[in-house]
Design a protein around this nucleic acid. Structure first.
Length: 234
DNA sequence: GCATTAATTGGTC
DNA sequence: GACCAATTAATGC
């Protein structure tokens, strides 16, 4: 499978944004595309860096293994976004892992190709710089706000963030997240996440149908809205 | 339909 | 709030 960047519909993608640039043409041919089934891991923490990944289609989670066999989900990424950028440039190994949540198609460029691209195309370099600055700010905001929250607030704000990023259809979040994913994202145990979620369901704040979770729009809550608005305003 | 995995609940520290 | 065990639901083959 190989799709031309000019045919790609992801306007968020930085490569796509500049794909008409003549100086970029030769590099676009060096793109590797591959698909990844749901649950499959494509970046392993500690493995050698092999460039950057751009999500063509699907949803991905970026996570890090902590000491006691538990996992912390750093962030979720969707089509058009970049994965693996923290291993780019200075380090030889990735300090994070990444797995597909649903069936995903990825575009990969090797580190060498990306570096040459950035040197030859200053416009692309500038957009990359903005991207990195933005990521840094978000991760700082995240750490600062999440640390002081109660478990209940972590779950709610986490779900609100996810719902805001991926959207809801028929009242349910469009990404097939497991309870464990939610727990790992909120930084709490799976047990806790399940208890809080079922409590919120009884209160009518959440909609639950099997594994699907939705935030009930008729019951807006201000818990966690601070973080969500922080993300929104960027 | 069976086997494996995830979700849930209750109990203990 | 963390950890463990037991039951039940969901999912893949």
């Amino acid at each position: 499978m190989n799709i031309e960047c000019s045919q790609c519909g992801n306007d968020l993608c930085l490569i796509k944004k500049h794909c008409q640039n003549k100086k970029l043409q030769t590099f676009l041919a060096a793109k590797n595309m591959f698909s990844c089934k749901a649950g499959q891991q494509f970046i392993l923490e500690g493995s050698p860096v092999y460039g950057l990944y751009f999500i063509y289609q699907g949803v991905v989670k970026v996570h890090k293994n902590t000491q006691h066999s538990s996992t912390q989900i750093i962030r979720f990424s969707k089509a058009g976004e970049i994965v693996g950028h923290r291993g780019f440039g200075t380090s030889y190994v990735y300090d994070i892992s990444a797995s597909a949540i649903e069936n995903t198609v990825l575009c990969n460029f090797s580190t060498a190709v990306i570096i040459e691209m950035l040197h030859k195309v200053p416009e692309l370099m500038f957009d990359f710089m903005l991207f990195y600055a933005d990521q840094l700010q978000k991760s700082e905001a995240n750490a600062k706000h999440f640390a002081r929250m109660s478990v209940r607030e972590k779950v709610l704000s986490g779900l609100q963030f996810i719902a805001n990023k991926f959207g809801q259809e028929q009242g349910f979040i469009t990404v097939p997240l497991s309870r464990k994913d939610i727990a790992d994202f909120a930084g709490i145990s799976t047990d806790q996440a399940i208890r809080v979620i079922s409590a919120l369901k009884k209160e009518g704040i959440l909609l639950i149908e099997g594994k699907k979770i939705g935030i009930c729009p008729t019951n807006p809550t201000d818990a966690g809205s601070e973080v969500v608005s922080y993300y929104l305003e960027g």
